[in-house]
């Protein structure tokens, strides 16, 4: 078995809750089958932080809430042959996008100044240059880069992810049974 011939997979959680990654882990013992046929590249699963090789498939959890997310997503687009939006946040913006109808200044004010549990006597907002800048609105991944496939669900079930991955890896059409089609 040589690593060079196995297709590589990268995964990332942008503005998500890691629930989609948890769901991926929920494929349980099939994880062993998976690593037989693929290698994980950049991913929180193996803690590789930068791309080591070009990848066949990139799985993106979460939408883009800040400039860092946008930057990472663009890196994924550049380094992956097939880019897949996983879950509602990647696909639609999801729960983080609930803030979208509220101006950013108001959101930050409530989070850092006026919220009921906030203690911030100086009233400063986090402005360090190292911190990502929030986007005016959380946006789904396909509004930032081209996305090849969208997997729905909050999170997509382990079975859904398994079926999608095995179909993509074997170059087959993704055809989910009705029960696996869920936006929630």
């Amino acid at each position: 078995m040589t690593t060079a011939v196995k297709p590589r997979i990268a995964t990332v959680s942008l503005a998500g809750c890691f629930g989609c990654h948890m769901s991926l882990l929920d494929i349980d013992e099939r994880l062993l089958d998976l690593v037989e046929i693929v290698d994980f590249d950049r991913s929180p699963i193996d803690d590789i932080k930068t791309f080591t090789h070009r990848c066949a498939i990139g799985l993106v959890e979460g939408g883009c809430a800040n400039d860092e997310n946008v930057h990472v997503l663009e890196e994924f687009r550049e380094n992956c042959d097939i880019l897949v939006s996983i879950g509602e946040c990647a696909r639609t913006g999801g729960i983080p996008a609930l803030r979208n109808s509220i101006p950013l200044a108001e959101c930050l004010d409530e989070a850092y100044r006026s919220g009921p549990t906030v203690y911030n006597p100086t009233g400063t907002l986090p402005t360090d240059e190292e911190l990502p800048l929030l986007l005016n609105r959380v946006v789904p991944c396909h509004e930032v880069v081209r996305i090849d496939y969208h997997v729905m669900g909050c999170p997509p079930s382990a079975e859904t992810l398994w079926q999608v991955l095995t179909a993509l890896l074997s170059n087959e059409k993704v055809q989910l049974p009705y029960e696996l089609i869920k936006y929630d």
């Binding site: 939006s85 509602e88 696909r91 639609t92 999801g94 729960i95 996008a97 609930l98 979208n100 109808s101 789904p140 396909h142 996305i147 496939y149 969208h150 997997v151 729905m152 909050c154 009705y178 089609i181 869920k182 936006y183 929630d184």
Partner: peptide, 27 residues
């Protein structure tokens, strides 16, 4: 603003059900 994951109507919603039936995976 249709946030299916936090909507009480999810599963009973005709809009959502139509999207499922029509195979809409992205907008």
């Amino acid at each position: 603003n249709h946030f299916c994951p936090c909507c009480e109507k999810s599963g009973n919603c005709e809009l959502q059900a139509l999207a499922y039936r029509l195979g809409i995976d992205s907008v």
